[in-house]
Each structure stands twice: as C-alpha cells, then as structure tokens.
Design a protein around this nucleic acid. Structure first.
Lengths: 221, 221
DNA sequence: CCGTTGCTCTAAAGAATCTTGGAAAATTAC
DNA sequence: GTAATTTTCCAAGATTCTTTAGAGCAACGG
C-alpha cells in the first residue's frame, strides 16, 4: 500500500483481490480445480503440474485475499473456495477472454480441439432428457472429484480408465460426457475416443460448476 | 508467453485478460469511469488523477486485452468498454472484495463514511416509488455523464454545484441521490450535505451501472 | 520419543510491471 | 501548408511478483 488516501487504498484493495484471483495462470488453474471441491495441497500440485512449494505459495496468496479457506484434516491441509462467487468470477473472466481476445479463442481450440464436431448438449437440454431417460451421463473426472459432487444419475469413468472400461458402456444409448468445466479437455477427449469406437457420444456444454451454479440437481458420494 | 504447451498458453491468455481488468488499481478506476459512458483520454486522466501518459498506457493495456475499444472523434480519441460484461466483472470483483477482505471493508468505510445512516434505498424500491411519484431522483454526477445516460426522470445537480443550487430542490419531497456506483463517494456526500440543510435525503444502493444492468429504465440526453 | 509425511516459511535471484518526463506522431483546424 | 492539439511512444528507475531450493514445523504412527 503506497498511498494513504482512502480512495487509493480502496482501489488498491480491490486490485489485490482481483490480482490474486485472476492475475496469474497458476492461480486461475488452482481455482478451477478447487471449483470441483475441497483439495489438499499435494493433490493440487499434482493435478496442476506445479511444484509443491509454488502451489503452497500461490494458495497462500489466494487465502490472503480471502478467496479460499483452509482447514487441517489429519496430516494434510485442505483448501476450498471461500465463496461460490469466486468461481463465478473466474468463469466470467474466462468467457470474456474467449469472446474478446482472439488469442484466447485460438489457444482454446488448440487445447480442446474442434468442439462443434462433438455436438455439445446444452445443460437445459440435458436436464430435460434426464427426466425422459434414454441418455447416459458420463463423468470422466477422477474418482475423488466425482465423489465430492456430480450430476445426479451420472456414471463415473475417469478418462484414464476409459479405454479398459469401454465394455461397461452401452453402444446403443446416447452418451453425454462432462468434466470440470467449459475449458477442460477431458470430456472432449473422452467423446472422441468413444466415437472412434462407434459409441454415440456427445459432450455437455460446461461442466459441474456451471451445472451447480444453475441450481440443477447435484448428488454427492 | 513462456510455454508452448496449449494448456499453459490458454491459462496465460486468461490471466492476461484478468490481469488487465483487475490487476491494477488505476485500471479498475478507469473501467469504473468508462462504465459511465464513453470518455476521452485527457478527461479520464483528469477524473482519475493519473498522469496523461500513464492513463494512455493503461488504456492501451485494456485495449490490448480486448476490454475497451477506441475511436477518434475530431481531435481526441474516445474510449468505451467493449462489452457490458466487463463492467459486470469489475462489479463482481469489488463486491467480493468488500465481502471477503476485511481490509477492503475498512477502506470503503473510510472512503464513503457510514452509509447505513443515509438509509440506502434498494433499486427495486426506487423503481416502484418512481411509478407512484412523490420522490425526486437526484443524479449528482458531472453533466457529461448525466447526458450519456441517467435514471429516467432524474434531475442532474453535479455535486460541485450542489451548495449553490440548494434552492432548486424541494424541502418537503423525499430525495434519493445516486452517482457512479456502489463505491462512489459522491452521492453519500451529497446526501449528507442535504440532510444537514434539513432536506429529506437518502441514497440509492448502487449507481447507474447497476441500475442499467438490471434492465431498469435509462434515459439519454 | 523418533522417524515419516505433508505442508509452510524464508531468502534470494530473476522477471515483469508501473510510473514518469520528454520526444515523436497523428489529426484536425486555420 | 503550417500550426495547434491531443495522444502515443520511449527509456529509465523503482517497485512488485514469481519461482525455486532448502530449512523448519506440525501431526501421526509406531
């Protein structure tokens, strides 16, 4: 805090929170992972590919801005987002980036491939078809994230296990795959694998955070 | 861009947009001013207290991230926000900061004084009472901002002119003052002046951007 | 009590960003 | 065409952020 002028202090404080949440790619990714549910430090480091000490440092920045909270659970420290609006803020920024920055659009295409070919299903449509039946919802996230919360009625087959568990899936039913969110590459990859093997697979537009934000039914355990 | 890994590039791009929008107090303030309407560079520098060259540089950062656009109008260059969601992003971050960071709450109180004493009126309530009549809506922003858009039926008395124009205002009618937004100190100050002089003044919760975002009636000119 | 595991803290180098004054550029106005 | 106005570019110094390695600390199991 350089100034003592109250207006300056106020805006510096806003910037501190904004910068903590969105100022660094590593922290954005951590918030994305935390949007799936509570996680330990080592787990986050592994999932994001960051060094452990760096992960800890970035989490401390997030905690210092009041965006995440931590608690000790036995030997490990577990973090979670402090407020659902934090997830909303990150989602909004990502969508804005995709819509306004051509570079972001290109990067997204590079990372996730051509989504349109996978015929994304809107959340509204999926919610309707869940009631009607005749559709299999496939959660391709790791088991721990599925356990922390998933779309009601979904079946969990982590992407890493998909090739060996193809036999468990029906060939004649429409399959809708989802994962961590709009910019998560797991469900598109799963859908591509399934299609190649002759399954009728599509992807959900958005992942669990968006589904939950809209008040659609989420199951735990 | 350090990495070439597509995931890294994608997150770096997100961070570039997020950092541009919320990473620096000066840019947050500029976005706040731009939320009121199109503005020239010198005007923005004057209103924010930044040096002209710095203002230009920060606007360039915002433009580079696709958050604002510019056009030349006669001899000056005028900037505006490129997407209404940009304003929403900033608003969300500010609210989050106030709710989650004690330091922000303290800074806001320092800057704006005790708001509760001014009996804030919700936007919903004001919209209802506008139909019923019997309330004077007072826009205390500078004339240029009023002209660019204001609450339908509002009267413009810029804060700087208020002391000399007290006579124009009715003493027996409820007055509701508003300005640039939730963290703008002009309307609270106006309400305090009015109350001291015996007027029945309150403040609106939020300013024009919030009013507009909710689809409430805005007039121009 | 001791070792192990899991995380945090410290320190420091290196990178990026902010800010400013003054020069340069782009347009308009005359 | 020339002058005037407005904005951007540039270079430099100060500041802040990021990242890493390694020491330190708390909890648990034996």
């Amino acid at each position: 805090m350089k100034g003592t002028d109250p207006k300056t202090v106020l805006y510096e404080t806003f910037a501190r929170v904004g910068k903590a949440a969105l100022g660094n790619p590593a922290r954005i990714e951590l918030l994305n992972l935390l949007a799936q549910g509570e996680r330990g430090v080592e787990e986050l480091a592994g999932a994001s590919g960051l060094k452990l000490s760096n992960t800890s440092a970035q989490l401390k920045v997030l905690a210092g801005a009041g965006l995440v909270t931590s608690r000790r659970a036995g030997t490990s420290v577990r973090y979670r987002v402090a407020d659902p609006r934090v997830t909303g803020l990150v989602e909004l920024a990502k969508r804005l980036a995709i819509d306004r920055a051509p570079r972001a659009r290109d990067a997204a295409r590079d990372w996730m491939g051509d989504m349109d070919a996978l015929e994304p299903v809107t959340r509204e449509e999926l919610a309707r078809r869940l009631d009607e039946g005749g559709v299999l919802v496939l959660d391709v996230r790791p088991g721990a994230e599925f356990a922390a919360g998933h779309i009601e009625g979904a079946v969990n087959v982590p992407l890493s296990d998909l090739p060996e568990r193809l036999g468990d899936l029906p060939r004649d039913t429409q399959i809708v795959a989802y994962c961590r969110g709009q910019f998560c590459a797991m469900s598109p990859e799963a859908a591509r694998i399934l299609r190649q093997e002759g399954y009728r697979a599509r992807v959900l537009d958005g992942g669990l955070p968006e589904w939950r934000d809209e008040g659609l039914p989420v199951a735990v355990g």
